[in-house]
Computed example of a mutant assay.
Amino acid sequence: MTDILLVEDNDELARLLKAFLADSGYSVLHAARGEEAVRYAVQGSVRLMILDIMLPGMDGFAVCRAVRAEQNVPILIMSAKSDKEDKLMGYELGADDYMEKPVDPEILTAKVNAILQRTEGRKEAAVISSGEITVDQEARTAYLKSRPLELNVKEYELLLLFVQNAGKTLRKEYIFGKVWGADSFSESQTLTVHVKMLRAKIETCPREPRRIVTVWGVGYRYEEI
């Protein structure tokens, strides 16, 4: 995968920025036209796009719109257009940041670093693995040994809470408040029933649970196996 797609029709500026970014450890692909940029970006083969607005043919706003319809690649707009309306347009189309020309290569690199750290950090945190259980928070799905688990809403929220607190003993009152809400009218017996249903889906032997362990008189502890 290429790190950065640089979309800039000024060859001299493109060469300068490409060399600077390469010195900072990034692999850079250059596109001089909007249509070419969209083709590269929608393939999902770049980590971030640096996008000029004033391009021949398809302008940067159109590129941003087309890419956002297909991919969630981070976009840093870099443009001589400094009007408030242009900046707002860029953000409304889904740009992650907007930088005015002339560009300071060091500041550009710092922005690239920050955007990648923020966006890729979010993706990583969205997927939590604990032993043989994996929970994808964005998709709201869970897997046991790569096998999808068919969970209802409360079973999913209960499993997510356990995985996030692996090894910790959680009091029943705490679990109930987190999953059903402190003001819920549901009976506390609901928690016991849902734990039983969840065990049936993730335990090898539900009658002798090894993942969701009962701590008598207190609550439950999730063990990472």
Score class of each variant (00 low, 15 high):
15 R>D: 06
126 A>T: 04
116 L>D: 04
33 R>N: 05
130 S>P: 01
187 E>S: 14
78 M>H: 15
26 Y>V: 05
206 P>H: 04
48 L>E: 08
189 Q>F: 05
6 L>T: 01
25 G>N: 05
79 S>H: 12
136 D>P: 03
132 E>H: 03
94 G>K: 12
13 L>R: 00
218 V>D: 01
183 D>Q: 13
109 T>V: 15
3 D>S: 12
139 A>G: 05
53 I>C: 12
150 E>Q: 08
165 N>T: 02
182 A>S: 12
42 V>K: 15
54 M>T: 10
77 I>K: 11
145 K>I: 05
178 K>H: 11
155 E>F: 06
30 H>K: 07
172 K>T: 08
28 V>I: 08
135 V>M: 04
102 P>Y: 12
22 A>D: 05
4 I>K: 05
52 D>T: 13
36 E>L: 04
129 S>F: 00
100 E>D: 10
18 K>M: 10
138 E>G: 04
213 V>F: 12
104 D>V: 14
88 L>F: 07
197 M>N: 11
101 K>P: 06
28 V>M: 06
105 P>C: 12
161 L>G: 00
144 L>W: 01
35 E>D: 14
114 A>R: 13
129 S>V: 01
183 D>T: 15
115 I>E: 13
43 Q>G: 10
169 T>R: 15
58 M>V: 14
31 A>V: 00
209 P>R: 14
78 M>E: 14
40 Y>D: 00
93 L>C: 14
191 L>V: 06
100 E>W: 03
17 L>I: 08
104 D>K: 15
49 M>Y: 11
178 K>V: 06
197 M>Q: 09
123 K>C: 02
165 N>P: 02
147 R>M: 11
138 E>D: 12
113 N>I: 00
138 E>V: 10
2 T>A: 09
114 A>F: 08
133 I>D: 03
184 S>G: 07
220 Y>I: 09
152 N>M: 03
26 Y>W: 09
136 D>I: 01
83 D>F: 01
171 R>Y: 07
2 T>Y: 13
86 D>R: 10
43 Q>A: 11
34 G>V: 13
48 L>S: 13
57 G>P: 08
157 E>W: 11
33 R>S: 02
55 L>V: 04
196 K>Q: 09
208 E>F: 14
69 A>N: 07
140 R>P: 01
52 D>H: 11
18 K>L: 05
210 R>L: 13
142 A>M: 03
28 V>Q: 07
201 K>P: 03
163 V>W: 02
201 K>V: 04
37 A>S: 11
222 Y>C: 08
27 S>M: 03
136 D>K: 00
193 V>G: 02
20 F>L: 04
23 D>V: 03
123 K>E: 11
2 T>Q: 14
163 V>E: 05
211 R>N: 03
22 A>H: 09
81 K>S: 06
108 L>G: 13
166 A>C: 12
221 R>A: 10
11 D>M: 09
42 V>Q: 14
43 Q>W: 00
129 S>Y: 02
3 D>V: 09
208 E>D: 15
45 S>Y: 05
63 V>E: 07
145 K>N: 14
151 L>R: 04
146 S>Q: 13
173 E>W: 03
95 A>W: 13
